Amino acid sequence: MTQRNPNSANEVEQFANNAFFDSAFPKQSQDFEEISKYLEENADYLPSMTIFDAAWQKYQDAMN
Rank of each mutant, 00 (worst) to 15 (best):
M1S: 03
M1A: 07
T2K: 11
Q3Y: 00
N5V: 01
N5I: 10
P6Q: 05
A9R: 06
N10P: 03
N10D: 13
E11A: 12
E11Q: 15
E11L: 13
V12T: 12
V12N: 02
V12K: 05
E13A: 06
Q14F: 05
F15E: 04
A16N: 05
A16W: 08
N17L: 07
N18W: 08
N18C: 07
A19K: 00
F21Q: 03
D22Q: 07
S23V: 05
A24F: 06
P26S: 03
K27T: 10
D31N: 15
F32V: 06
E33A: 15
E33I: 11
E34P: 01
E34N: 05
I35K: 13
S36A: 15
S36P: 01
K37E: 11
K37H: 15
Y38T: 08
Y38F: 14
L39N: 12
L39V: 09
E40G: 06
E40L: 15
E41S: 15
E41Q: 14
N42C: 04
A43V: 06
L46I: 14
S48M: 09
M49T: 02
T50P: 00
T50R: 14
T50V: 10
F52D: 01
F52C: 03
F52Q: 12
D53P: 01
A55R: 11
W56I: 04
K58L: 12
Y59P: 04
Q60T: 08
Q60I: 11
Q60R: 13
A62V: 04
A62L: 13
M63L: 15
M63G: 09
N64S: 02
